[in-house]
Deep mutational scan, measured.
Amino acid sequence: IRCIGVSNRDFVEGMSGGTWVDVVLEHGGCVTVMAQDKPTVDIELVTTTVSNMAEVRSYCYEASISDMASDSRCPTQGEAYLDKQSDTQYVCKRTLVDRGWGNGCGLFGKGSLVTCAKFTCSKKMTGKSIQPENLEYRIMLSVHGSQHSGMIVNDTGYETDENRAKVEVTPNSPRAEATLGGFGSLGLDCEPRTGLDFSDLYYLTMNNKHWLVHKEWFHDIPLPWHAGADTGTPHWNNKEALVEFKDAHAKRQTVVVLGSQEGAVHTALAGALEAEMDGAKGKLFSGHLKCRLKMDKLRLKGVSYSLCTAAFTFTKVPAETLHGTVTVEVQYAGTDGPCKIPVQMAVDMQTLTPVGRLITANPVITESTENSKMMLELDPPFGDSYIVIGVGDKKITHHWHRSGSTIGKAFEATVRGAKRMAVLGDTAWDFGSVGGVFNSLGKGIHQIFGAAFKSLFGGMSWFSQILIGTLLVWLGLNTKNGSISLTCLALGGVMIFLSTAVSA
């Protein structure tokens, strides 16, 4: 259960009878995928790494000078000259100064003066180019299975845990398959586009800190620079940016070097996208990844198990997540596992009318040892309800109150669905055939309105939902006002479609 501690969480529900669903994975976010007769899966884009970055340009932001020398000439005696002028490691300046009897010249006039100092770069920052084909995306998957609280967001041991898996995709191999043991396998067909235009970005490294910066900004930095990788004795261009020549006297000129420019660069980098280094690879934390999940090989585990009949206890007080759902960790005293956990939410304890829904599909106890633990997640209705676990006299209950409203949740879900469709863009549509167009249209309606429909009408039977949709269509056909007619027709059509397409 990876997503319960992530604030940016998206719930995606598969269409009834569908074998695939489109998701948008982004750094700092987590996606929970639910479908009829399929286990619930949490998917998170953990890291995006980039390798084989080529150094484009380096800037010196802290330097020192040494070996200063000057040469001067009297008027009419030609130009002052130093051998160091031809050495690229030196920074030199030529000027004219007033000369006369007082400073060793027989004539009054302008004399030539040249001053040089050896330039040494102490600290530099480097910009590297990123090729999209060198990106690698690491995705962690977790099935809502027989897990306890100690396994949440624990990325170790996934090789031997059938509840978890790690997959890596690249532009050259965008397809992967996550093996989930008894739950089958989940196929991923990803489109490795981060949403960032790397043709316009460089990877900047300064003092063990890293950013993504725009090329134009990078090339306009007014500091000494050299092109390409460091060859040991780089040729620094624009050395004068960190060196200041003071007022010249008759035979000498003082040279000083400016202080470190790291603070000024940090100020200019305010708002830039931060990154990290992992050995020789860069780690990015921006952008998104679009994936199509193929769920035809994914299956529920323990459908044929019998119900657990022994007593359950709450190991922890049920807690609310950031998303309005409830996490419950229970301990089973029996030894008759594997068995299914009898769990439901009810409005009252007399009729036990089921409300809400299970995020953890078909929760089971897989071990036959005593005191096995299991964590599950529920989506309670707004208002008061009861969490009921167990059967008969051994069942345990917990009162729950959820604040908020169904309308607010439906609106929030619609906005999130619209954002998801905007990110998917043209990849969500198939114009290759008439059937493809209608299929894409259905998927689009489901992406945007599916979660809201589930919130508003999830407790009704599909037949009642179709009746309401048919009534809206009838009202649309018999209303003389054009805008009201079109609105009723659209709402009725969407409702009829979703009542037959969205899983219960």
Results as ranks from 00 to 15, higher is better:
397 T>W: 00
115 T>F: 06
30 C>L: 01
396 I>N: 07
452 A>H: 05
487 T>S: 09
24 V>G: 07
186 L>P: 01
88 T>C: 04
291 C>M: 06
11 F>E: 08
387 I>P: 00
383 G>T: 02
149 S>M: 14
490 A>W: 13
257 V>D: 04
431 F>N: 10
173 S>M: 10
148 H>P: 10
74 C>W: 12
106 G>N: 01
163 N>W: 06
74 C>R: 09
62 E>H: 08
39 P>D: 08
14 G>F: 08
223 L>T: 09
264 A>S: 12
238 N>A: 03
367 E>H: 03
201 L>K: 00
481 N>T: 07
371 N>Y: 02
82 L>Y: 03
138 R>L: 14
182 G>Y: 04
71 D>Y: 01
484 I>K: 12
391 V>A: 05
346 A>V: 03
221 I>V: 14
230 D>T: 10
374 M>G: 14
314 F>L: 15
433 S>Q: 04
458 G>M: 10
83 D>E: 14
58 S>E: 10
154 N>S: 14
41 V>F: 15
10 D>W: 08
390 G>C: 05
93 K>W: 12
155 D>H: 15
233 T>M: 09
430 D>S: 06
232 G>E: 12
123 K>Q: 15
483 S>K: 13
351 T>C: 00
496 I>P: 03
76 T>Y: 04
2 R>K: 11
187 G>L: 15
434 V>T: 01
385 S>P: 14
362 N>W: 08
409 K>Y: 07
90 Y>C: 13
366 T>E: 00
384 D>V: 10
265 V>D: 12
226 H>V: 14
224 P>E: 10
287 G>V: 15
246 K>V: 02
280 A>Q: 10
490 A>I: 14
107 L>W: 10
418 A>C: 07
248 A>R: 05
468 I>D: 01
238 N>F: 07
421 M>K: 07
4 I>R: 01
212 L>P: 02
379 D>Q: 05
502 V>R: 04
456 L>E: 10
116 C>K: 06
203 Y>V: 06
197 D>E: 09
204 L>K: 10
9 R>P: 01
85 Q>S: 11
74 C>Y: 12
91 V>F: 15
240 E>S: 00
313 T>E: 02
370 E>G: 09
334 G>R: 07
393 D>I: 03
488 C>Y: 13
194 T>I: 12
194 T>Q: 08
29 G>I: 00
210 H>P: 01
162 E>L: 10
381 P>V: 00
8 N>T: 12
375 M>I: 06
481 N>P: 10
422 A>W: 13
287 G>R: 00
163 N>C: 04
170 T>S: 04
47 T>C: 00
92 C>S: 10
304 S>A: 07
367 E>M: 06
25 L>P: 00
227 A>N: 03
397 T>C: 05
402 R>V: 01
366 T>Q: 01
415 V>K: 11
118 K>H: 02
153 V>P: 10
487 T>R: 03
247 D>A: 15
486 L>V: 15
230 D>N: 14
62 E>G: 08
27 H>E: 05
112 S>V: 14
98 D>S: 04
30 C>A: 02
124 K>P: 00
308 C>H: 10
22 D>F: 07
213 V>K: 10
105 C>R: 09
368 S>F: 10
494 V>S: 11
299 R>S: 04
474 W>S: 02
104 G>P: 03
169 V>C: 05
127 G>E: 11
260 S>D: 10
402 R>D: 08
214 H>D: 10
44 E>R: 02
70 S>Q: 07
478 N>W: 09
83 D>H: 05
156 T>V: 06
277 M>Q: 03
15 M>F: 15
413 A>N: 01
437 V>A: 11
209 K>R: 13
104 G>N: 05
382 F>N: 07
352 L>R: 11
155 D>E: 11
143 V>S: 02
360 T>E: 05
76 T>E: 06
24 V>K: 08
400 W>K: 08
316 K>M: 13
26 E>P: 01
217 W>D: 10
196 L>E: 00
193 R>T: 15
57 R>G: 13
116 C>T: 06
149 S>T: 10
495 M>L: 14
17 G>L: 01
118 K>A: 13
79 E>W: 12
82 L>H: 14
